[in-house]
Design a protein around this nucleic acid. Structure first.
Length: 577
DNA sequence: GACGCGTTGGTCCC
DNA sequence: GGGACCAACGCGTC
């Protein structure tokens, strides 16, 4: 197409982490340039397109648009480009490449940060160039930025020019070819289903959200959670109305077993997809806390309160921004403690690339991992949570703690890297920084070290849900078990198992059932008390080496010899039960 | 170097 | 339901 008559076209590259009209610094800056042509382009990432196609109904705002960037610069003749900054490791690579491409084409790149409370790179700088490893460090660094206050959210624009508005633009004089000509940025991804963004879809819907191509049929949705800016603002508004809930919110006091309604705000997916601004969330909460404080009512403090939860998110983003790709793996990662987990990721090759494979050093651990992943460990609390995760894409934070501890240091002794991969695929609120960071936390490889605090798959659930309602919901085969046996169904007498219509047998695979009509629930895959002792002992042993992911002994594999030599000399605590 | 504390443990006992 | 104890890491502060 030719753009000879267009004096100031602006291309706004808008990706999934900034998909809102309110508090969108990049959109705001784009409009301030007063473009004659305003071209929002949904960028796409193979990573997220992959997620969109494999999950149990992915989130509404997974957008895909083919943006052939170098061609676009040449053809659109744009001299100004806006970019929404993203510090995820793969996004750092992408942004570096795109910015270089733009500069080569003589295009001015304007970058705005909109994803976190504070710019992760600025947090690193204020934290003496280091990744933030504790909430105290985040708070101190934030005070140096703006006395601890993030930027105020920006109001949504009152109007947005239509992209390629033919009437307003008089495109007849533009002598442009049809926008369908090459490079066609959106050809395969056009639909009119998204009403929320109808004002920026363009008169011919050339810039619409590509629902059909994403492969999402909302009528078939397994998850009860819904996306979109309107929904995000509605939910936030509802939460904010309950001032006591907001002001007294303490994460450790919210139940991981609650569903319909859940005990937390459910706003995390909106933060991930950019349909809610984290700064609006923070300032709205802040206002409520101030009100309550003035009214002399109790107000929870950082880090357990809501603001604290958002600060943890910034902590992980900062740590990730600092380490790049190293953050998400053990090898070469200086912040993670090295532990001799089963099923560790294969080390990078000579070029530093990883192929995503892992070493199956133990068939037993591999089977435990598969059973955990599929929700058939034989521990109903764990299985209910894993099935809720698979069906709905969301579980409560403490539920995540429970299943993560069970897979790693408190049960299977499987590498946190395996668990993080499963969460990445299944969570609708997955953010690499938070997911990886929390797995490191729970497995006691970074951020946290008190490995002797171990979650029991029986006691912890019982504390929150003595009736076992979460289990009855997500493991319906156990629905008729009495509360005495619901967390340990294998202890129920056979007569009762028959009476309650479910036998505890096999490993949860269909082949393990004796007949098609049998209703069964698997036997526990190991003795938990025994495994807890073995894991605790192994953690103590691993900690005694003080190895980290970037240690030479980790790189060359010589840790194995040392661990084994020391292993043979230490007393075993294995105990028969 | 000592000491207290750390977003969210479990168990036992009162 | 509340407190002591379990077994005991790393960080921040004094």
């Amino acid at each position: 197409m030719k753009t000879g008559h267009v004096s100031n076209p602006v291309v706004l590259y808008w990706h999934r982490t900034d998909l809102r009209l309110h508090d969108s610094p990049a959109l705001h800056a784009a409009l301030a340039l007063k473009p004659l042509v305003f071209i929002p382009v949904w960028t796409w990432d193979p990573h997220y397109v992959y997620k969109a196609r494999v999950g149990p109904n992915r989130w509404k705002f997974l957008l895909e648009c083919q943006s052939q960037l170098s061609d676009a610069y040449e053809n659109l003749n744009s001299k100004q480009k806006l970019w929404v900054k993203d510090t995820d490791a793969y996004a750092q690579d992408r942004d570096t490449a795109v910015i270089a491409m733009a500069e080569k084409a003589g295009v001015q790149v304007i970058i705005r940060m909109g994803r976190t409370l504070f710019d992760p790179d600025e947090l690193i700088q204020k934290n003496n160039g280091k990744p933030t490893m504790s909430i105290t460090q985040v708070e101190k660094a934030a005070v140096k930025i703006n006395n601890g206050n993030p930027d105020k959210p920006i109001d949504p624009p009152s109007s947005i020019p239509d992209p390629w508005d033919e009437e307003r633009m008089d495109l007849s004089s533009l002598e442009h070819d049809s926008i369908d000509n090459q490079p066609d940025l959106n050809a395969e991804h056009r639909t009119q289903k998204d009403e929320q963004y109808s004002n920026i879809m363009g008169p011919k819907n050339d810039f619409a959200v590509p629902w059909d191509d994403i492969g999402i049929d909302l009528s078939q949705a397994a998850t009860p959670h819904r996306g979109g800016e309107a929904e995000a603002l509605r939910v936030l508004g509802e939460c904010i109305k309950n001032e006591e809930y907001i002001a007294q919110f303490e994460k450790p006091q919210t139940s991981p077993a609650a569903f319909e309604p859940q005990s937390t705000t459910l706003l995390s997916p909106h933060l991930h997809f950019g349909s809610l601004s984290v700064r609006k969330f923070w300032w709205d909460v802040h206002a409520v806390m101030e009100n309550q404080r003035k009214a002399k009512k109790p107000v929870a403090s950082v880090p357990t309160n809501l603001s604290g939860q958002l600060l943890f998110r910034d902590m992980y983003f900062c740590a990730q921004a600092s380490l790049g790709h190293r953050f998400a793996r053990t090898h070469g990662n200086e912040i993670v403690r090295f532990i001799d987990w089963h099923l560790q990721s294969s080390p990078p090759d000579k070029n530093g690339s990883v192929d995503g494979s892992y070493e199956v050093d133990s068939q037993e651990a591999e089977e435990w991992f598969q059973r955990w992943k599929e929700g058939r460990t034989g521990f109903p609390w764990i299985d209910a949570l894993m099935r809720q995760l698979r069906q709905e894409g969301w579980i409560h934070h403490l539920g995540r703690h429970s299943v993560a501890c069970f897979l790693t240091r408190g049960g299977c002794y499987v590498s946190w890297e395996r668990g993080a991969e499963v969460f990445e695929e299944l969570l609708i609120d997955h953010e690499t920084a938070c997911n990886i960071g929390n797995w490191q936390w729970l497995s006691c490889t970074a951020f946290y070290a008190m490995f002797y605090r171990c979650y029991s798959p029986i006691s912890f659930g019982k504390k929150w849900d003595p009736e076992g309602n979460l289990i009855r919901r997500y493991c319906p085969e156990l629905a008729k078990f009495d509360k005495k046996h619901i967390y340990e169904p294998w202890k129920a007498p056979i007569a009762d198992q028959k009476k309650w219509g479910c036998r505890v047998t096999g490993d949860g695979t269909s082949s393990s059932r004796s007949g098609d009509t049998d209703n069964t629930y698997p036997k526990p895959m190991f003795n938990f008390d025994e495994r807890r002792r073995i894991c605790l002992d192994a953690m103590k042993h691993a900690f005694s080496f003080s190895l980290h992911g970037d240690d030479a002994k980790v790189k060359d594999g010589s840790w194995k010899k040392e661990f084994r030599a020391s292993e043979s000399s230490r007393p075993t605590k294995r105990q028969k039960t």
